[in-house]
Simulated scan of single mutants.
Amino acid sequence: MAIKSLNISADGKREMTINEFKRWLKKLDADKDGKISRKELAEAVHISRGWFAKLKANREIRKVDSNGNGYVDESEFENLVEFAEKHLSVRILHLYDISLH
């Protein structure tokens, strides 16, 4: 599942708003259960040419899963911003970033 965005920053990261990021995360939900599993997150890391996809996904799920159910659900999607910026070559644009462009 490729990350589609028209805006690419100078460092090669795809730029998207938090709402675009949430829509993209929903596309990762292969079984359409409304949650991102370790396997689905690992697939995103792998597709983004990341190393150690399973390890990173397992660690991140444990870190951002605030309700402890083993998945990242829609209410926890914003918790994945830092992970996406580090491991998925994404830059999340915040309102102050957009006003500068």
Results as ranks from 00 to 15, higher is better:
K4S: 12
I61L: 08
A10L: 15
N69F: 02
E60W: 07
L6G: 14
L95N: 07
I61H: 04
L88T: 03
G34C: 12
A53C: 10
K13G: 01
E20A: 11
V45I: 07
V64Q: 08
E82K: 15
S37N: 11
D65W: 00
S89C: 12
K86F: 05
K4M: 12
K35L: 08
K4N: 05
I98W: 03
K35M: 11
V81F: 08
R23P: 01
L55F: 14
W24T: 05
L100R: 14
S75W: 02
E43P: 00
T17M: 04
S89T: 05
E43A: 15
V64P: 06
K56T: 00
E74L: 09
G34D: 09
L6T: 10
N69T: 02
I92P: 00
F21K: 06
N67S: 06
S75E: 13
D11G: 05
L41K: 01
Y71T: 09
K63E: 10
L25A: 06
Y71G: 01
A10F: 13
E20W: 06
R14G: 07
K27M: 15
L28E: 06
I36D: 01
N7F: 14
D65N: 14
F83Q: 08
G50Q: 06
G70N: 03
N69S: 12
S48M: 02
K32W: 06
A42H: 00
T17L: 05
K54C: 05
M16Q: 08
E78S: 12
S89V: 03
A53I: 03
H87A: 06
E20Q: 15
R23V: 15
D29E: 05
L88D: 04
D31H: 07
E60V: 09
R59M: 14
R59E: 07
K39Q: 10
L55K: 12
S89N: 14
K54Y: 09
K27Y: 01
S37K: 07
S75F: 04
V81S: 00
N58M: 09
R38Y: 00
H87P: 02
H46M: 14
E82Y: 09
I47T: 10
E82P: 03
R91K: 15
R23T: 12
I92W: 06
L6F: 10
L41V: 04
K35N: 12
R14A: 13
E60H: 03
A10M: 11
E78V: 08
D73I: 01
D65Y: 02
F83W: 04
K39D: 08
D97S: 11
N58T: 10
D97T: 03
L80R: 01
R91L: 13
K54P: 04
D65F: 02
S99K: 14
N69V: 04
E15C: 14
N19V: 14
K35G: 05
D73R: 00
R91I: 06
S75P: 00
I61F: 02
R49C: 05
H46P: 00
V90L: 09
K27T: 15
L93I: 05
D33C: 03
L41Y: 01
A53Y: 03
S9G: 07
I61T: 03
A30D: 14
E85C: 02
K56P: 00
L28T: 02
H87N: 13
A2W: 09
K22F: 13
S9D: 11
D29Q: 04
K26N: 13
L95K: 11
E15I: 15
N7H: 12
